[in-house]
Simulated scan of single mutants.
Amino acid sequence: MDAPLVSCQDCSRTWHSRTMADGLRTIGHCPRCSGTLAWAEDAGDAAVVATPAGAAADVAPHLVLGLPRR
Score class of each variant (00 low, 15 high):
residue 1 M to G: 07
residue 3 A to P: 09
residue 4 P to Q: 06
residue 5 L to A: 05
residue 5 L to M: 10
residue 5 L to R: 08
residue 5 L to V: 04
residue 5 L to Y: 02
residue 6 V to K: 02
residue 6 V to Y: 01
residue 6 V to Q: 10
residue 6 V to W: 03
residue 6 V to A: 09
residue 7 S to I: 00
residue 7 S to E: 15
residue 7 S to P: 00
residue 7 S to M: 11
residue 7 S to Y: 03
residue 8 C to F: 02
residue 8 C to Y: 03
residue 8 C to E: 10
residue 10 D to Y: 03
residue 10 D to W: 03
residue 10 D to A: 14
residue 11 C to W: 02
residue 12 S to L: 12
residue 12 S to P: 00
residue 12 S to R: 09
residue 13 R to K: 09
residue 13 R to V: 07
residue 13 R to C: 05
residue 15 W to S: 05
residue 16 H to A: 04
residue 16 H to V: 02
residue 17 S to R: 09
residue 18 R to L: 05
residue 19 T to F: 15
residue 19 T to Q: 15
residue 21 A to N: 00
residue 21 A to W: 02
residue 21 A to I: 01
residue 22 D to I: 00
residue 22 D to H: 14
residue 22 D to V: 06
residue 24 L to F: 11
residue 24 L to R: 02
residue 24 L to G: 01
residue 25 R to P: 00
residue 26 T to Q: 11
residue 26 T to S: 12
residue 27 I to W: 14
residue 27 I to G: 04
residue 28 G to I: 10
residue 29 H to S: 12
residue 29 H to N: 07
residue 30 C to R: 13
residue 31 P to M: 03
residue 32 R to G: 11
residue 34 S to T: 11
residue 35 G to D: 12
residue 35 G to C: 04
residue 35 G to W: 06
residue 35 G to K: 14
residue 35 G to H: 08
residue 37 L to A: 14
residue 37 L to S: 06
residue 38 A to R: 15
residue 38 A to F: 06
residue 39 W to P: 00
residue 39 W to H: 04
residue 40 A to C: 06
residue 40 A to T: 00
residue 41 E to G: 14
residue 41 E to N: 14
residue 42 D to K: 08
residue 44 G to P: 00
residue 45 D to C: 04
residue 45 D to Q: 08
residue 51 T to R: 14
residue 51 T to M: 15
residue 51 T to L: 13
residue 52 P to R: 15
residue 52 P to D: 15
residue 52 P to L: 15
residue 55 A to E: 06
residue 56 A to W: 00
residue 57 A to V: 05
residue 57 A to R: 09
residue 57 A to W: 00
residue 58 D to G: 11
residue 59 V to T: 12
residue 59 V to D: 02
residue 60 A to N: 03
residue 61 P to C: 03
residue 61 P to N: 05
residue 63 L to N: 05
residue 64 V to C: 05
residue 64 V to W: 12
residue 64 V to R: 15
residue 64 V to Q: 13
residue 66 G to R: 15
residue 66 G to E: 09
residue 67 L to K: 12
residue 68 P to Y: 14
residue 68 P to G: 12
residue 70 R to T: 11
residue 70 R to M: 11
residue 70 R to V: 09
